[in-house]
Design a protein around this nucleic acid. Structure first.
Lengths: 199, 199
DNA sequence: ACCATCCTGAAATGAGAATTCCAAGATACT
DNA sequence: AGTATCTTGGAATTCTCATTTCAGGATGGT
């Protein structure tokens, strides 16, 4: 009996993700969303609720479709340090070139804004951090089992450290940080964790 | 002939800094500024210009009065690695407890928002980054001269790395990161740079 | 073909934003 | 004391924002 939706909520949400990701929630108006998606206000509100709920849905979608697959690949990679190295190479690549260059990470961006005062947003931030750290930890444990770590390196502390560095990359990339410089910096960090010539 | 100002622009700007620092520029209204400073709209606009100029003035004041003194102290410290260690201890302390706990760093926060699209803002961001990196570099060179660095450590790369970590601390502290955990992470990073038992 | 149900479009609402204006008050030089 | 000049207070203006409303159109099961 009911009429069906005349649009794809999934594709719409993806468009919304990109808007909030690039511009942030505060500087993105519902009008921007309407224009970008081609949707009508009514359909938007009927489908997603208000702006806050829309943002939250977009943030969760970002975590699920952009972050988690990368985290999973890292955690399940059996190579150890090369997996970590590749993770950072991909991160810097994504942050500095291509379609999303200079957009940073939507979750990292959320840290700095006022949007993080909402408990639901905070929960996504915490989840993202936990999953990032755990993925790094898993890869580092794999590396350790294969004797790739210097004897003094603690996988737990190193995972925390690399997670922090990832946030730094995300942040600085938004201000136009040079990707070659970021790559060099991250390489130095990984060298200090792994076995080295002088170690 | 002219009337004089009936308020202290410097004290006013300091109040504005705290507003923008805590809430960000997008979620802070001129009304908030008027209420917090007790000033009148007219005086505000006559003294500082519009909101964008006010934010820029506040951001510059933050850099000058909050960041640069700390950078200078770090750069001029003759102790080497202990100076770096103390810098991070102070950073984490400031970010996690006291009056400004969970506020993050105003400059780091600016990275993530839409305000960084303005060239003047971007310039402050770049200046902050350069000065932070250079201060760390100076301290690390001092450390190197005193034989405090492991032989494989490059002061330049290490400075870049530590700067990135500082941004990570600033960001995560806004989401309520545990200060003990941050301390431990940073300690691990410094250990990997300095001479160590196993190195 | 009917019609309950949902979707769609555009206008309306109302709150809150930044900025401007102007009359009244205060100042310091002459 | 007079006065030119700046400051101040608060209302006024002009937008833009998020959200709601509602009439009309489309759908698909009966």
């Amino acid at each position: 009996m009911p009429d069906i939706k005349h649009f794809d909520p999934d594709a719409t949400l993806e468009t919304v993700v990109r808007l909030f990701w690039r511009q942030g929630v505060a500087s993105t108006g519902i009008q921007d969303v309407v224009t970008a998606t081609g949707l009508n206000r009514s359909s938007l509100y009927a489908t997603f609720g208000g702006k806050q709920e829309l943002y939250l849905a977009a943030l969760r979608r970002y975590l699920e479709l952009r972050s988690q697959p990368v985290f999973r690949r890292l955690a399940e990679d059996e190579r150890g340090l090369p997996a970590v190295s590749e993770f950072f190479a991909g991160l810097i690549e994504a942050r500095c070139s291509g379609e999303y260059a200079r957009w940073g990470c939507m979750v990292s961006n959320a840290h700095a804004g006022a949007e993080n005062s909402a408990p639901e947003v905070r929960a996504v931030l915490d989840q993202h951090h936990r999953e990032l750290r755990d993925a790094l930890y898993a890869a580092l444990v794999t590396a350790d089992c294969q004797g790739q770590l210097s004897s003094s390196a603690d996988p737990g502390a190193a995972a925390d450290l690399l997670a922090l560095i990832a946030y730094g990359v995300n942040l600085r990339s938004r201000a136009g940080a040079d990707d070659a410089s970021l790559r060099k910096t991250v390489t130095a960090a990984l060298d200090s964790i792994g076995v080295r010539a002088a170690g």
